[in-house]
Structures are given as C-alpha cells and as structure tokens.
C-alpha cells in the first residue's frame, strides 16, 4: 500500500508539469481553432517555458523568489497529498496556502497593477473557497471518508450523490483556471486593465515557475474532477478521464463564448451557484443519510 502511495505521489510530481503543459497546449490549439485561427503547436507552452528560463531576471523585491518558490512547493505538496491518497481536506488547505503565497509575491512588488490584482485575487479566493470546502464535505457525506484512498474505493461514483456539487465545482473551476468570464485577477491574454494581474511584475524564470505551478494546480484540480467519477470498479477510470477531458473542453468553450465579468458579479454569482447547487445538494444528501 505504501509503495503505491509513493509511486502515485512521485508520478504526480514528475508527470504533472508535462500533462499540465500539454493540456495548456491543447487549450491554446482548441481556442485558436474556435477563433478560426490555425494556432500554435501543441508543444508551444513548453517552448515558452524554455525561453522564459533564458531571460534576464529583474527582481523588484528579493523576497519574491522565496514567495513564488513557496507557491510552487505548496501546490506540489497539496497535489502530492491528494494523489498519494491522503486527506482531501488537508490537501485543499495546502492549496489555499499556496494561493496565499502567490498573493504575497504579487503584493511585495509595490506595482499598482499587481497590488490591485492581488486584492482581486483575494476576492476570487473568497468566491471559490466556500464551494471548495463544500465539495470536501460532499465527498465525506457521499463516501464517509476524507481520505482519497477510501473515496476511490467506494461502491458508487460520488457524482451520483453529488451532481449539484459537481456543477458548483465546475463553475468555480472556471475561476481557478482563470478562464474568461472570471479571469479578473489575471487573464491568459493580457488585454485587460490589470495588464497581467498578479504576475505583472514577475519576469523570466520567476514567471516560468508560476506557470509551472499553475500546471501542477490544474492537474490537481482536474484530479478532483476525476474523483467525482472514480469508484471501486476499474472501468470507472477511463470514464473519469473522459469526464475530465469533457470538463476541460467545456472550460475552453466557456472561455471563448463569454465576456469578462466584473469582480462583484463574480463574487455574487459564485456564491449563488454554491448556495443553489451545493447547498441544495447538501440538504438532500443530509436528508438521505438521516432517513436511510
């Protein structure tokens, strides 16, 4: 059992950046085709990262390196926790810590753009955190455990009990992945009032690290999406991968069919969805357990 955990953990640490980068490349290609463009090669994100590492570094504040490094470490830590099959709750809180380090890194630069963007990043965290925590609770109620290793051994896929949670989670995934209607603190294309948001002042390899951390984070988030589908039956695994790919396609599609909203709308709509879908689902689940 312990060797499996170790292997999964190592697998995540070594493979996640490649999977994340590849997914990013696919996203770019899909977006390009949706816009009628030929688009870059699928490997373009890797070329970009390599190029970023060759750039000269300008540090506005020397603590930035430490903070960005911590962001990466905590993202990897939270992902490793989850993929090794440990506590989901623990992993989510580690992810929140990671996000905090990113905000600190962006705050430390004194640039008005990144300062405002870090405020917005905090607002974003406020909008998605309730749903993230609710999802945790949902998994517990559906399977009776916070341990990922137990969740994947359940008889039925958690999504059967958690359709509302799933919708809510996909909704906040758009915020987490910085996709179009909700990319208020940083967008994948910089044509916005915050320039490049929290990463405005990050240069060269520093920016490359945030990019890699983002890939780790994306893989972990998609892992949670997969968790909704996986049960004790091995057939559920390919189904889960299909589900993940569908969700990813959906995110790209939404990115390409909506305008960016303002932060107040992001906050209110995220909470509304959380309350409506997550809350109702929680209520129903609670009643089911009580009268089982």
């Amino acid at each position: 059992m312990n060797t499996t955990r170790l292997l999964c953990c190592l697998g995540y640490i070594l493979l996640a950046p490649f999977i994340g980068g590849l997914l990013d490349g696919i996203d770019r290609k899909l977006s390009a085709r949706m816009q009628g463009r030929t688009g870059p090669s699928i490997l373009q994100p890797f070329y970009d990262i390599i190029k970023l590492f060759h750039k000269q570094i300008f540090l506005v504040n020397h603590s930035q390196f430490f903070l960005v490094g911590s962001y990466l470490v905590f993202v990897i830590f939270s992902g490793a926790l989850m993929f090794a099959g440990y506590d989901l709750l623990m992993s989510f809180f580690a992810l929140t810590t990671a996000a905090m380090f990113l905000v600190l890194a962006s705050c430390s630069t004194h640039s008005p753009f990144s300062a405002m963007a870090s405020q917005r990043e905090l607002l974003q965290m406020m909008s998605y955190e309730p749903m993230v925590l609710l999802a945790c609770v949902g998994f517990y109620l559906a399977t009776g455990s916070f341990q990922v290793s137990d969740i994947i051994q359940s008889n039925l896929s958690p999504i059967v009990f958690l359709p509302g949670f799933f919708i809510g989670f996909v909704y906040i995934l758009t915020i987490k992945m910085r996709k179009s209607p909700f990319d208020i603190s940083t967008a994948h294309h910089a044509h916005q009032e915050m320039v490049r948001g929290v990463t405005t002042e990050m240069v060269g390899s520093l920016y490359a690290i945030t990019q890699i951390a983002e890939w780790y984070e994306n893989v972990m988030l998609l892992g949670i999406v997969a968790l909704f589908f996986i049960n004790g039956n091995p057939i559920s695994w390919p189904l889960a991968i299909l589900g993940v790919l569908f969700v990813y396609f959906l995110e790209t599609l939404i990115d390409n069919t909506t305008a960016r909203l303002k932060w107040s709308k992001v906050l209110s709509s995220a909470w509304l969805v959380t309350l409506l879908f997550g809350g109702l689902n929680l209520l129903v689940l609670d009643l089911m357990i009580k009268y089982r």
Partner: peptide, 8 residues
C-alpha cells in the same frame, strides 16, 4: 469554427 478549416 472549431469544425471547419481555419481561415488563417
């Protein structure tokens, strides 16, 4: 657009 040839 996705299912047609790109224009670029």
């Amino acid at each position: 657009n996705l299912f047609h040839k790109p224009v670029t």
